[in-house]
Amino acid sequence: MATPNPLADSSSDPTPVSSKTYTIAGVHTTVYGLDELASAAKEVAVLWLLHPRLQVQSIMAPIAAASIHDWNGRSASKSKGLIAVSFDQRNHGTREVNPLANESWKKNNPTHAQDMFSIFHGTAQDTSMLIDFLSSYVFPDSSHTITKHLVLGISLGGHSTWQCIIHDPRITTAVVVIGCPDYKFLMADRAKKSKLSTWTSSEGKDFLGSTDYPKGLCDATDKWDPKAFLVGDKLQPTEDQKKTLRPLLKEKLGGKHIMCLSGGKDKLVPYTCSAPFLDWLKTGVDKESGWFNDQGIVLEDIVDETAGHEYSAKMKVEAVRFISENLAGEGSLKAGTRTSKI
Results as ranks from 00 to 15, higher is better:
Lys195Glu: 15
Glu239Thr: 12
Ser201Asp: 15
Lys234Met: 14
Asp219Ser: 15
Cys180Lys: 07
Cys218Pro: 04
Lys227Ile: 07
Thr200Asp: 10
Trp162Lys: 03
Tyr183Cys: 02
Ala191Arg: 07
Gly232Ala: 09
Phe207Asn: 04
Met187Pro: 00
Thr173Trp: 02
Val177Gly: 01
Ser202Asp: 03
Val176Lys: 00
Pro226Ile: 02
Ser194Lys: 06
Trp199Gln: 05
Val175Cys: 06
Lys205Asp: 15
Asp212Ser: 07
Phe229Val: 03
Ser194Gln: 08
Trp224Arg: 00
Ser155Ile: 01
Phe229Asn: 06
Glu203Tyr: 14
Lys242Tyr: 05
Ser160His: 03
Lys242Gln: 07
Leu230Val: 06
Lys195Asn: 14
Tyr183Asn: 02
Thr172Arg: 09
Gly232Tyr: 08
Gly232Ile: 08
Asp206Val: 12
Cys218Thr: 13
Cys180Thr: 12
Thr172Trp: 02
Leu217His: 06
Gly204Thr: 08
Gln236Ala: 13
Thr238Val: 06
Val176Ile: 13
Phe207Arg: 01
Asp206Gly: 11
Gln236Pro: 06
Gly153Leu: 07
Gln163Asp: 11
Ile166Lys: 04
Thr161Val: 08
Gly216Tyr: 12
Val175Asp: 00
Lys227His: 13
Lys184Gln: 11
Lys234Glu: 14
Ala191Trp: 01
Ser210Val: 00
Val175Thr: 01
Gly204His: 08
Asp219Asn: 15
Met187Leu: 10
Trp224Gly: 03
Ile166Asp: 03
Val177Lys: 05
Lys192Val: 07
Ser201Trp: 10
Lys184Phe: 05
Lys223Gly: 08
Gly179Tyr: 03
Ser202Pro: 04
Ala228Asp: 00
Val175Pro: 02
Val151Gly: 04
Glu239Leu: 10
Gln163His: 14
Ala220Asp: 12
Gln236Leu: 13
Tyr183Thr: 03
Gln241Pro: 07
Leu208Asn: 03
Glu239Ala: 12
Pro181Cys: 10
Thr238Arg: 04
Leu208Cys: 09
Val231Tyr: 00
Thr244Trp: 14
Tyr213Gln: 01
Gly158Leu: 06
Thr211Val: 12
Ser201Ala: 15
Ile154Cys: 09
His167Leu: 14
Arg190Trp: 13
Ile154Asn: 07
Cys180Val: 13
Ile178Cys: 09
Leu150Arg: 01
Tyr183Ser: 04
Leu217Gly: 02
Thr200Gln: 10
Glu203His: 14
Val151Gln: 00
Trp162Leu: 07
Ile166Ala: 05
Phe229Cys: 09
Thr221Phe: 11
Thr198Lys: 14
Val177Thr: 08
Ser210Gly: 00
Asp225Tyr: 05
Cys180Met: 11
Gly232Met: 09
Lys148Ser: 11
Ile165Arg: 01
Lys184Pro: 01
Lys195Leu: 13
Glu239Tyr: 06
Asp182Ile: 08
Ser201Cys: 12
Asp225Arg: 03
Lys195Trp: 12
Phe185Lys: 14
Asp222Leu: 14
Asp222Met: 14
Lys205Val: 15
Ser201Val: 12
Val231Lys: 04
Ala220Tyr: 11
Thr198Asp: 15
Gly158Tyr: 02
Lys242Trp: 02
Lys242Val: 08
Ile166Met: 10
Arg190Leu: 14
Lys192Ala: 13
Asp212Tyr: 01
Leu235Asp: 11
Tyr213Pro: 00
Pro237Arg: 10
Lys234Ile: 12
